[in-house]
């Protein structure tokens, strides 16, 4: 048999090749020309800064994602390189090094929930059957908790956290994972009751209540609320606690973790997050004082507590 290629077929093949090649070449030339003509000069520093940032796009810096902050911080010489809270001091130092700015001091922060009124400690005024979200629940007469300042427990913060650092306790109170929390502040703005705030990670004693109600009102609504008795204000050896409109507040700059207030609080509102199993600084100091027999009046009580769990 003799194999011959049909002349028409050959022509079609040649034409097809020419067309595809032509289209390819035309676009190639146009694109190459466009790439040259419309080349955008990007600052290589932006790319470096972008790589140094965590890339979570949480918006804690106030810009639209990490790329936005990287561009702004390179462009604007007055902008602080330490705005990335999730990155903490390491990233601030790295960014500052890349763009030649001085790294500001970044105090590591962590989110703290200023309410202990969970399902069994704080009562509810009515049964809320709506959308299970704090921002929806608050629209119904300010939420179903009797305490109008307290945590609603429908987990808006839990859903908002971009780092999965918040979990809900079995009694519907948010629990912050200090390891995962980057202090981006997303939960702070997500909470309609504003009970979450950023506090210095190093400070472990918190007055975990947000209620500005008077004592009897608080007592009725919640087992663990601050009744504004003022015992902690009087007892604090550093004068770090003050009463602000029926709510005790700690000045974290002055607090030395002496734990006097933790012992004094009759409502157990003041929480001490120092792990009792760990021998942390101030605790050992107090224990030593006690051993030496020179325990001063306020130091006695915490030392006794420190000895207990051991």
């Amino acid at each position: 048999m003799q194999e011959t290629v049909h002349p028409d077929l050959l022509q079609v093949i040649i034409k097809s090749l020419a067309l595809m090649g032509g289209v390819g070449a035309a676009f190639g030339i146009v694109l190459a020309y466009a790439a040259k003509k419309f080349a955008v000069e990007t600052d290589p520093l932006v790319e470096l800064v972008r790589a140094a940032l965590p890339g979570a796009n949480c918006g804690a810096c106030g810009f639209a994602g990490c790329q936005g902050y990287a561009e702004a911080v390179v462009k604007d010489p007055t902008l602080s390189p330490g705005l990335c809270t999730p990155g903490k001091a390491d990233v601030a130092a790295l960014v500052a090094k890349i763009i030649g700015k001085v790294a500001p001091e970044v105090v590591p922060m962590v989110a703290t929930v200023f309410c202990r009124g969970d399902e069994c400690k704080a009562s509810r005024r009515f049964v809320y059957e709506g959308v299970k979200d704090c921002r929806a629940a608050i629209l119904v007469a300010g939420g179903d908790k009797t305490c109008q300042y307290g945590c609603l427990g429908y987990g808006s913060c839990f859903k908002a956290c971009p780092f999965g650092a918040i979990s809900m306790s079995p009694d519907n109170l948010p629990v912050i994972d200090h390891e995962k929390c980057t202090a981006c502040g997303v939960c702070v703005s997500a909470c309609p009751k504003s009970i979450i705030a950023l506090t210095p990670t190093a400070k472990k004693v918190h007055i975990r209540c947000s209620s500005h109600d008077k004592g009897p009102v608080v007592k009725k609504a919640c087992e663990l609320g601050c009744v504004a008795c003022g015992l902690c204000v009087k007892g604090c050896p550093e004068g770090a606690i003050s009463m602000d409109n029926f709510l005790a507040r700690i000045d974290y700059e002055k607090c030395t973790h002496c734990e006097t207030c933790v012992m004094l609080c009759p409502q157990r509102t003041i929480e001490d997050q120092i792990d009792p199993s760990k021998e942390t600084g101030p605790r050992t100091k107090l224990a030593r004082k006690e051993d030496a027999g020179g325990g001063s009046e306020p130091a006695d009580a915490p030392a006794a507590k420190a000895a207990k769990p051991a």
């Binding site: 694109l31 466009a34 419309f38 080349a39 955008v40």
Partner: peptide, 10 residues
Amino acid sequence: QGADTVLKKI
């Protein structure tokens, strides 16, 4: 691709 390049500049 071309639109992408041109838009970036313009």
